[in-house]
Design a protein around this nucleic acid. Structure first.
Lengths: 154, 154
DNA sequence: TATTGTTATACTCTATAACTATA
DNA sequence: TATAGTTATAGAGTATAACAATA
């Protein structure tokens, strides 16, 4: 083996710590804005897609339509989104940003860019390039393994 | 600037995808074992510390003692842990693994090692070394920023 | 007095199943 | 008959506050 299992394990430990810290940072910011992770995730998807039916949000988030009802209820109460009638389908509602919601969604994007600069801004290219290359390969391995597990589990 | 914000943003995107996929993989495995993330986290800490009071678990997990009561209730019902009297303090209970719990905790460790091999086993040293170096620096930046944010927020 | 764990209460996220209005 | 969203019900995780037993 070119490397010990201990070295690979330590690298995974670093990756896991990174996920924990990024999660903590995000969570901090959300609490400040009066949001939960689930609600923020919905706002993020809404920002990516524009006004959306609850069904499409449910599919995007990978949760049940009933769950989306609850999340939208919360976001309506706290003033981030509105329910509007769908122009051509009277069964459906279009979830749309309020001004406040729009502002927050833009802040998300800015915040994400700031985090990217914080993490990588000072990293010299000699490290950044192989980092991205290695990360790409690691992701490929993981995607493949998960897809195979999903195949086998069916 | 040596790199564009777009490149840094893309790198962050990769990192975030990695966190999502690792979370999905872990979650898959936990559901198979009849565990939730919170309960698995408690088992993990218990494995690191050995038999523990609920207070110490609460501190380790960063949740309230009341919350630990619920998690331990669930783990007792599903046969992963037992409550035993504390030998010297009759107020406290010692949460200890059952045989089944012990077995699962060992499987966690093996599973984690397998994931490490899956992710990094095929990565050539020329990529692995700078990857770890870069990751270390990124973690330092993030730890520092979070510590400062915690300072300021007090 | 302080600490350990629990009861009481409440909020959020999540799911399934049944129901209403509309397509 | 099928789809969009909601009501009903339930379980899990989380929190605060009040309380019992013990230190």
């Amino acid at each position: 083996m070119s490397r010990t299992a201990t070295e690979n394990g330590a690298a995974l430990g670093q990756v896991l710590e990174l996920t924990v810290l990024l999660g903590a940072d995000m969570s901090q910011a959300l609490v400040r804005e009066g949001l939960t992770e689930s609600r923020a995730h919905l706002l993020w998807e809404l920002g990516q897609r524009g006004p959306s039916t609850q069904q499409s949000l449910a599919r995007a988030l990978g949760v049940t339509p009933r769950n989306v009802t609850g999340l939208v209820d919360g976001l309506v109460q706290t003033g981030f989104v509105e329910r509007r009638p769908h122009p051509s389908d009277r069964r459906a509602t279009l979830v749309t940003f309020t001004e406040r919601g729009e502002r927050i969604a833009e802040e998300f994007q800015r915040g994400r860019a700031q985090v990217a600069e914080l993490l990588f801004g000072d990293l010299p290219d000699e490290l950044f390039s192989p980092f991205v290359e290695a990360l790409g390969r690691v992701l490929d391995r993981l995607r493949t393994a998960l897809a195979e597990a999903a195949e086998g589990g069916r």
